[in-house]
């Protein structure tokens, strides 16, 4: 009697467990970034970058000194990644807006306004590390698939592509995604020998700028007014005991004076 009851229970739990599992795995879920392979994301990303840079608001900056210092920061962070399927590209665009955002395929755009706002290369690195978090966690693609659907996102139609590009420059993330990107940034900064809690400094300074119109499009403050909890989370991040800081050797003020 007891055995047969237990067997029945096992059958029931098994069937419904499988239904749950099966329905969860089945990719009917419209936000699943897995719907877009990374290779495809990279290809799409290249197309989006070309289109975004055509927009006069996002003119690519031609300044060798700045490009090379951004490259130094970017290389340091890329070197801190354990492994990545993305080829990162860091693009500086000429705009007084304090802004940085991520296009699909590991393309991170940084405004000259943000460079000017950053008081040290470490502060800029903290923002870039946060953006790299959105790339590695595939938040950009997840967001786009959620908002537009996979068909529109991968549409070859130039008009649709142009519209999507317009949306990409003002993508907002939700609180969970922001927290994930923050945590990712802390780990990445630590692995890149940069003080992870610099990110909290950036948040504090951004919070003090509340109301500044130049910040209007900056995705990192998507969760406003939740800054305090993010600052708290970052400050409570504890690096490993053997963590050492390796400061950037560039003359930041000199570089900024070339803006």
């Amino acid at each position: 009697m007891q055995q047969s009851i237990l067997r029945d229970l096992g059958i029931l739990l098994g069937i419904f467990g499988l239904i749950w599992l099966g329905a969860s795995l089945f990719s009917f879920y419209p936000e699943d970034p897995q719907l877009l392979s990374i290779e495809r994301e990279q290809k799409l990303g290249d197309a989006y970058v070309d289109l975004v840079l055509l927009n006069p608001m996002f003119q690519e900056l031609e300044n060798e000194k700045i490009d090379s210092s951004i490259q130094v920061i970017g290389d340091r962070l890329s070197g801190g990644l354990n492994q990545s399927e993305f080829d990162y590209r860091f693009i500086v665009f000429d705009s007084e807006m304090i802004n940085a955002f991520t296009l699909p395929g590991g393309n991170i755009l940084i405004s000259t306004g943000l460079i000017g706002f950053s008081e040290s290369p470490e502060e800029l690195a903290a923002v870039i590390a946060h953006e790299m978090g959105h790339v590695e966690e595939r938040h950009v693609v997840a967001r786009l698939i959620k908002e537009l659907g996979i068909e529109i996102l991968t549409s070859g139609d130039p008009y649709v592509l142009g519209e999507v590009t317009g949306m990409l420059t003002s993508t907002r993330f939700d609180r969970k995604q922001e927290e994930e990107a923050d945590l990712f940034a802390c780990h990445l900064l630590e692995d890149s020998n940069i003080e992870p809690r610099t990110l909290a400094t950036v948040f504090r300074r951004l919070e003090q700028e509340t109301g500044n119109e130049l910040l209007e499009h900056f995705e990192i403050i998507s969760t406003h007014p939740n800054f305090r909890s993010r600052i708290r989370d970052v400050l409570s991040y504890l690096p490993e005991d053997d963590f050492t800081v390796e400061p950037f050797t560039m003359d930041w003020e000199e570089i900024k004076s070339g803006l």
């Binding site: 329905a23 969860s24 009917f28 879920y29």
Partner: peptide, 18 residues
């Protein structure tokens, strides 16, 4: 909270429906 309807949630919804 954050409108984070994961696939595990949708799977649960379907299982509950069944």
């Amino acid at each position: 909270r954050d409108f984070n309807f994961t696939s595990i949630y949708w799977g649960y919804l379907i299982m509950t429906g069944v």
